[in-house]
Write a protein that binds this DNA or RNA. Structure first.
Length: 397
RNA sequence: GUGGAUGUAGCUCAGUAGGUAGAGCGCUUGGUUGUGGCCCAAGUGGUCGUGGGUUCAAGUCCCAUCAUUCACC
């Protein structure tokens, strides 16, 4: 994998670059659709391509549980299995063990957890995660880390960071000790942790930079902390990361978060929002988010977004989409997923164009003049996640 | 025609020993950030079929009546 930086924005720190992988290039900044179960939910590969997707995500945790590594190995890796010939990035499973699994016990370098599907016991370690991702054959592999919850006290964050740093080095050593399985190379990205503590974050960024990785991710943000902290830390971390390597802000975010992140020096982002919320009726437009299920769209015969060129906007109306959602029809979810993915990718593509033409500050201003930003519900969301976890616990009993 | 059952929120139904009504779903509106088509939160909504009676007080007890439904003629 090679990364080339083309242009930087001033005074904002936005960057435009190109990542070259054996499965083709990724033009940054880029939004990456999430395809947890070897599928970006509801979309075919053709539709993904039409939406402009250049790279998608797969999940170690989910694919390890189903269909399992035997199937993946026999299939010849994730690319062949799902017939996707563009780049793939795989998550390490660290976050899912933290957010989905019923029980997470860390003893030494072994993390024991129960499957959220059937409650069966499993164990991950940096080595196991690397072995799985080697079989998956992703173009970009993520190190195995511990994602700290929010809130998280300083001492726990500090201890966790030391553990994560050890695991990151183990991940690197283990992945490099073997040749790639499927003939194409695999890059390894480190993950900066440290919760909301600036000194820990900066220390983490420096340590990982010295250790040397192909790219650097920022993890453990967007887990319930206030937005200002997320933006501020993102900026400070990017400031100390090497310029000649891509930066990836994990799990972010809403359109406004994406623009804010790009302005602070982030190159890559992923989020389940455009696909998950598509299934619940949230439509993202240049004017802000709308809920197509709302009564007001019953007789609205305009497109989802008048300025969008996606298949859904070119062929259907809000009234039709409203009806499809009222009936819980599959097509509604598919069309809306097509639209939202198109919109999120388009957002980063337009940002890139602006950076390349030294117009990013104007683009930034125009975006926020038009886009209606939602209120910050981070804290309520953290509670929501907690409730959900409690519910999983109850189901287990 | 005779006998029984049932009439409470838009729908399906709770409502205990009489104290001016609840749930689920629906509907309205928020939320969802390294994915369980879920889930969470708030809100709307009923002169308890109708008319009498008993009682300080009736969805609840009594009488009549209407509607629906079942069984038997």
């Amino acid at each position: 994998m090679k990364f080339k930086l083309h242009n930087e924005s001033n005074p904002l720190s936005a960057r435009a670059g190109t990542i070259q992988t054996d499965h083709g290039k990724i033009e940054t900044p880029i939004f990456m659709p999430v395809g947890t179960h070897a599928t970006v939910k509801a979309l075919s590969n053709d539709e993904l391509n039409a939406a402009g997707a250049q790279v998608i995500l797969g999940n170690t945790y989910h694919l390890y549980l189903r269909p399992g590594m035997e199937v993946m190995e026999t299939a010849g890796g994730l690319h062949k299995f799902m017939n996707w010939d563009k780049p793939i990035l795989t998550d390490s499973g660290g976050f899912q063990v933290f957010s989905l699994a019923h029980l997470r016990k860390i003893e030494g370098d072994i993390t024991t957890f129960r499957s959220h599907i059937d409650g069966s016991l499993h164990q991950f370690s940096p080595e196991v995660s690397m072995d799985i991702q080697r079989i998956l054959g992703s173009d970009i592999v993520m190190v195995f880390d511990e994602c700290t919850p929010y809130p998280c006290d300083y001492d726990y964050a500090k201890e966790s960071l030391a553990l994560t740093h050890r695991w990151e080095k183990m991940s690197k050593d283990h992945l490099l000790s073997k040749d790639p399985l499927w003939g194409h190379s695999q890059a390894l990205f480190a993950i900066v942790q440290g919760s909301v503590y600036e000194d820990l974050r900066l220390k983490s960024a420096k340590y990982l930079t010295d250790e040397g990785f192909d790219g650097y991710a920022i993890g453990g943000l967007a887990v319930g902390e206030p937005k200002e902290i997320m933006y501020d830390l993102t900026h400070k971390i990017c400031d100390v990361l090497p310029k000649d390597k891509p930066r990836y802000l994990m799990g972010v975010g809403k359109p406004e978060d994406i623009i804010h992140s790009i302005a602070r020096g982030v190159d890559m982002m992923d989020c389940v929002l455009p696909t998950r919320n598509a299934r619940n009726g949230s439509v993202y437009t240049w004017d802000g988010k709308i809920n197509i299920k709302n009564q007001q769209y019953r007789r609205d015969f305009t497109p989802l977004d008048p300025d969008c060129d996606c298949y859904a906007c070119k062929n259907h109306t809000r009234a039709y989409m409203h009806h499809l959602y009222r009936q819980n029809e599959i097509l509604g979810m598919r069309l809306n997923s097509i639209h939202n993915i198109y919109f999120f990718v388009q957002l980063t593509r337009e940002a890139r164009k602006a950076i390349m033409k030294d117009r990013f500050p104007a683009f930034y201003k125009d975006f926020f003049n038009r886009y209606r930003v939602e209120k910050d519900h981070s804290e309520a969301n953290a509670i929501h996640r907690e409730n959900r976890r409690k519910k999983f616990e109850l189901n287990k009993e």
